[in-house]
Design a protein around this nucleic acid. Structure first.
Length: 843
RNA sequence: GGGUUGUUAGCUCAGUUGGCUAGAGCGCCUCGUUUACACCGAGGAGGUCGGGGGUCCGAGCCCCUCACAACCCACCA
């Protein structure tokens, strides 16, 4: 069989993935301890971004545990991503000159559905191209009926338990998207905005939002502020642009007496702080801005203006009346904006569905504090506890058509009469003679995805996958700790009385090569598929997981992808050589006295244990490092090189299989490509068992190690010499005598000869009687190098002597360390003697 | 204002409970046409582990302090 000189991933990857799928290789075996991972469902509205390539972390785990004999499943999914998808969809409508208001709701829903179906299949192909070994037969879409049914049953249970309430509250509202948001979807930034100092009845005060003045229902001062004590409780008349109005003066701790004049106007309907003051003092709330972002009729002649235009107009009117005292144009404050379009978030008074999170959060908190879940990195659990402590009630209503409709209907004759009903395909239903109208809102996406682990495993219905709940590990990005992980824990405990997963591993964000956040507007977005196309899937997999540690953001590194590509090529060429040796020596029986084979088995045993330990403890970068260097440095550079001579075919095959297995979780495609060329029996590497320890003879392994140190020493010397090949002379050394060819090849010598008297340069650092046959002039030239080495060794000795001269060290350091130091000192002293003797000759 | 994390080679980053000579990849330098691989082989340069102090026989790692960076949270009109 002819294999090309370099590995060409694109020739194999698609076929290999198809082969795995056809063989059902990703299905759980049904035998062994269950091991499960659920994929954070990628948004079905777009292509994968580079962060998604960290799915390989989960794939490394699942492939390893699958090979280790666990009953392993990796459940994939896709998220309808309510608001996210809606934004993308609306943009595409806009580009066609259309608007959501041009279509009836049902038609819109169908249009989004088609839009998503198209993008979703793309996204799923991309997951395949990353080699993710998930069981596609368990694929779940967040709008599947089984998801909707469980989401409804959770909503019903909460309703019955009194955890759901409909409340008129201030919500974060984007006037452009015309929907409300959870707290977590609002981004805050420090910005400059004018601060207006105004005359306000008998007071002076500062405000950034004069246009909300029409909604003022109070003025607040600090209870301990003597300046205003007499006013508290009184009603004062304010001279305003639309005439006079009255407000009450309240005392509240919220006021900072040292800020401005120590007086704050209270606009409950348009400020979160003011809303809370209003709650405490039972103040009315007047909404002056409508959901379309325009001032309403409460503002009189300003009605119909946008917020910013209204502000300008109100300020002008106030200036004419002499109500503006001064304007600080460079005042800096924190402004909340829509995380999608950047529109200023308007606190909006609306009736919405809320979850009373306190009982859920308390339960989650104590479970986490109890250590029921292991976090990697650990400090994230403290962060989460902190978040759960401060969590406010959760607004689950969204005013967008795309999503799971809220199964609640309102009596058309009695606005306070709401009933739960799942007939959401109808806009109106009749119950006991009353007509009820469906709430037009949909659920916040996190309400459904927060139930993901027990939904996807059919746990509540005791389905076939129920044994996979709780999941073994939840692996996702640090950015999802609050919005998703926290909710899964709360809802998981609520519905199943169990933690939804036993461990949480959080990866840091992938930033661009300069460490900046990626964003479309910065134009620094990296498309993982470009890298798959150019370097291969395995190269990207290895590159993205190299040098990465839990929870830390890390710049995407082109260089590590290249390292991954190089490694795959190395594997490929090892296979080519092994194949060639097999082809040329088809009937070669095992050779028993193969030192290199004994040694490499010893190395591999150790590496295997290290790799397993690293994976099991989520140290992926270290695992890859071990795989990379064991295979490249030990197997390729020593063992395979030695086998060019020995041609120990059965062992070569054994080692090759071993190498493919330990590399497979990291580089599944190239290892499978090689495996299938070596194994014509139709077996697949993906389904093989993880490696066991190999038996080897320690004496022979050690013998090989002493040959290595001799070879290393010779290389060290010859690399300093003029190019060419040199002869090695030795006196009666059995190991050298038995391995003449091996040493000649590995050290790149012309010959190795037995002599009765040495000449040339003694290979000083080993205690062997071996010389490089060099002329006197060459040895002389080498003198400075010997002197340098001698000086270094003497410095080492001085260090060791001072350490051993320290009584504290002798008394308190572990004995084995002291012993090692002593041994080291003895060895170094012997080396010095040999180097000195060597230098004598050159004089 | 509070919190978390980080600052290690030219670049991107590892470094598991303090243990003796701090590692990797990429880049750089020297040499190499050994028919697996130049996406290669052999060798090498490059670090006072952000600054200062402390604990300890021993500190990249623990403690204190300062500086800088990133992220998150927060009710300052």
């Amino acid at each position: 069989m002819q294999l090309p000189k370099t590995y060409e991933p694109n020739r194999y990857e698609t076929d290999i993935y198809a082969m795995w799928e056809a063989a059902g290789a990703f299905k759980p075996s049904g035998a062994g301890d269950p091991y499960s991972i659920v994929m954070p469902p990628p948004n079905a509205n777009a292509n994968l971004h580079v962060g998604h390539s960290l799915e390989v972390i989960k794939d490394i785990l699942i492939r390893y545990y699958r090979m280790s004999g666990r009953d392993a499943v990796y459940i994939p999914g896709a998220d309808h991503a309510g608001f996210e998808t809606w934004v993308v969809f609306e943009k595409s409508l806009e580009s066609e000159g259309k608007s959501r208001f041009d279509f009836p709701r049902e038609q819109l829903y169908q249009m989004v559905w088609d839009f998503v179906a198209k993008n979703r299949s793309n996204m799923e192909l991309q997951i395949r191209s990353l080699g993710i070994s998930c069981d596609w037969s368990t694929n779940t879409f967040t709008l599947d009926s089984k998801v909707v049914n469980i989401v409804y049953s959770t909503f019903k249970k909460m309703w019955d338990d009194g955890l759901i309430y409909r409340g008129e509250r201030l919500v974060n509202y984007c006037t452009r998207h015309q929907t409300s948001f959870a707290d977590i979807e609002v981004v805050y930034d420090e910005e400059e905005t004018p601060l207006y100092y105004i005359k306000y009845g008998p007071f002076e005060l500062a405000t950034t939002r004069p246009e909300t003045k029409f909604g003022d229902t109070a003025v607040a001062v600090h209870p301990d502020d003597d300046r205003y004590r007499e006013w508290v409780g009184q009603t004062v008349t304010i001279h305003g642009v639309n005439g006079d109005f009255n407000v009450v003066v309240v005392a509240d701790e919220m006021v900072d007496p040292h800020f401005g004049t120590g007086v704050v106007k209270i606009t409950p309907a348009h400020s979160f702080d003011d809303w809370e003051v209003a709650q405490r003092h039972d103040l009315p709330a007047v909404r002056v801005i409508d959901p379309d972002g325009k001032l309403n009729d409460k503002t009189g002649r300003f009605a119909g203006m946008t917020i910013l235009d209204g502000r300008k107009a109100v300020v002008e009117a106030m200036q004419e009346m002499g109500l503006i005292l001064k304007i600080d144009e460079h005042y800096k404050t924190r402004i909340g904006r829509c995380y999608k379009c950047g529109t200023m978030i308007e606190p909006m008074l609306m009736k919405q569905w809320f979850i009373n999170v306190k009982p859920l959060a308390e339960r989650a908190k104590s479970a986490i504090e109890n250590g029921d879940i292991k976090f990697v990195p650990e400090q994230k659990s403290r962060e989460l506890v902190h978040y759960l402590t401060e969590l406010r009630d959760w607004n689950i209503s969204r005013q967008i058509p795309w999503g799971i409709p809220i199964p609640a209907f309102q009596n058309v004759d009695d606005g306070d009469d709401w009933i739960f009903d799942t007939r959401v395909d109808q806009t109106e239903i009749e119950v006991e003679g009353h007509i009820y109208r469906r709430d037009s809102d949909t659920f916040d996406t996190w309400f459904s995805s927060g139930q993901w682990p027990f939904i996807t495993t059919d746990y509540l219905d005791s389905g076939e996958l129920a044994r996979f709940y709780p999941n073994s590990v939840m692996e996702t990005g640090t950015d999802l700790l609050r919005p998703w992980v926290a909710r899964m824990i709360m809802l998981g405990l609520y519905r199943t009385d169990q933690m939804p997963f036993k461990e949480v591993y959080l990866h840091g964000m992938v930033t661009d090569e300069k460490g900046r956040k990626m964003s479309k507007s910065k134009g620094n977005v990296i498309n993982p598929m470009d890298f798959v196309a150019e370097f291969g899937s395995d190269a990207l997999r290895m590159g993205i997981s190299m040098n990465r540690s839990a929870g830390q953001p890390q710049a995407f590194s082109h260089a590590t992808v290249i390292a991954g590509r190089n490694f795959c090529n190395k594997l490929w060429n090892m296979a080519r050589l092994v194949q060639k040796i097999i082809d040329e020596n088809p009937n070669q029986a095992e050779i028993s006295d193969d030192l290199a084979a004994q040694w490499v088995k010893k190395q591999l045993n150790q590496a295997q244990r290290t790799i397993a330990d690293h994976i099991e403890n989520y140290r992926f970068a270290e695992a890859i490092d071990t795989v990379y260097h064991t295979i490249w440095d030990d197997v390729a550079d020593w063992f395979i090189e030695a086998e060019k001579l020995t041609k120990n075919v059965p062992v070569l095959m054994e080692i090759m299989d071993y190498v493919l297995k330990i590399a497979h979780p990291f580089a599944p495609f190239v290892t499978e490509a090689i495996w299938t060329t070596f194994h014509s029996d139709g077996s697949l590497l993906v389904s093989q068992q993880w490696v066991n320890d190999l038996t080897y003879h320690d004496d022979e392994a050690e013998e090989f190690e002493s040959i290595q140190s001799l070879v290393n020493e010779i290389r060290l010397v010859t690399t300093q010499l003029p190019a060419g090949k040199y002869d090695l002379l030795y006196i009666g050394d059995e190991i050298i005598a038995d391995n003449v060819d091996l040493i000649t090849t590995l050290a790149g010598l012309k010959s190795v000869q037995q002599v009765t008297a040495g000449r040339g340069l003694r290979i000083a650092s080993t205690d062997r009687e071996a010389w490089l046959d060099l002329s006197y002039e060459m040895v002389y030239e080498h003198q400075t190098r010997l002197e340098k080495r001698l000086a270094e060794t003497r410095a080492d000795i001085a260090k060791l002597e001072s350490r051993l001269g320290n009584q504290g060290y002798i008394d308190r350091a572990p004995t084995h360390l002291v012993e090692e130091s002593r041994q080291d000192l003895t060895d170094k002293q012997a080396l010095v003697e040999r180097l000195v003797a060597e230098l004598e000759i050159t004089k």
